[in-house]
């Protein structure tokens, strides 16, 4: 345990990963309650297109991925609210088109390197000083922002018409939430990779929801579960030389099934 902590890269992974865990813990509650996990995983896959654009153009791939994801979320929203296309259909189209764009662009550039693998499966133990610093500042800002709008987000999630009649600016709050979610997803790619991002976005909230029906407790539990999985996953992968993203996601799944069994036992007990 202490030996791992003496390594700079482990320290950076723990700080960056820990903050990101707290942030996804909060976001996850609303993703689960709004039932938009498919949108989340769609945005993550679409981000691959943004990563490829970054590779080709020389822009930082995380930055291009964030911008590209925001564009895609906006596109999904625009197509599904103005056109006659269901939202899940729009997500399916944008997500595969972006993933395909990424694959073709990377094929053209012929840069099949380890980095690419990192984006698919996560590379938290490889983050640089600069990435850790910028990432941490961004995440702390977003955590504060999401807490500040959590009251409105809660009411919109409960019922949009009631929120409207209470005078809440629904579009504004939803935009802030979707932007935050897109940033969380793209940064989460560093942690667990595109393929496993849904684990981070869905499982903490879903597990907490099994254990409580009180909103504040649910958010706290969700953060605790995300934090335990991320730090646990980083340590385990360091000592047993396992892929970090996979280990974190497996730990999340273990928490979920434990909560599921616990909840069954408690329910059958009374």
């Amino acid at each position: 345990m202490f030996e791992a902590l003496s390594y700079g890269f482990v320290q950076r992974a723990l700080i960056g990963g820990g903050l990101l865990a707290l942030f996804s813990g909060i976001i996850s509650v609303f993703v689960v309650l709004r039932r938009i996990s498919f949108l989340g995983s769609g945005i993550a896959h679409a981000a691959f297109g943004g990563v490829a654009i970054g590779f080709i153009s020389g822009i930082n791939p995380l930055l291009s991925a964030i911008l590209y994801s925001l564009l895609i979320s906006y596109g999904i929203e625009a197509v599904s609210t103005r056109g006659r296309i269901a939202e899940d259909t729009a997500i399916g189209i944008f997500f595969t088109a972006s993933m395909a764009l990424g694959i073709v662009l990377i094929g053209i550039s012929r840069k099949y390197n380890v980095d690419l693998f990192g984006y698919l499966f996560g590379s938290i133990l490889a983050i640089t000083h600069e990435e850790a610093l910028i990432g941490s500042v961004v995440i702390i800002f977003l955590i504060i922002l999401i807490i500040l709008i959590s009251k409105e987000l809660y009411l919109i999630t409960f019922n949009e018409e009631l929120a409207f009649v209470s005078g809440i600016k629904i579009r504004l709050i939803k935009s802030v939430f979707f932007i935050s979610m897109a940033v969380a997803i793209v940064l989460g790619i560093k942690l667990v990779g595109i393929i496993l991002i849904s684990a981070l976005l869905v499982i903490p909230g879903a597990t907490a929801h099994l254990l409580t029906k009180r909103i504040v407790r649910m958010i706290i539990l969700s953060c605790v579960i995300a934090l335990a999985s991320v730090t646990g996953g980083i340590f385990l992968s360091f000592y047993f030389n396992l892929p970090t993203g996979g280990t974190i996601s497996l730990l999340l799944a273990v928490f979920f099934f434990m909560a599921f069994l616990l909840q069954r036992l408690l329910r059958d007990g009374n």
């Binding site: 009251k151 409105e152 409960f158 929120a163 809440i168 409580t212 909103i215």
Partner: peptide, 19 residues
């Protein structure tokens, strides 16, 4: 509303004051 939505009666009433 989802029967499992995390809200108590008083939470629901309080949302009436959010504006």
């Amino acid at each position: 509303i989802d029967l499992n939505f995390p809200a108590t009666s008083i939470n629901v009433v309080l949302t009436g004051l959010y504006g």
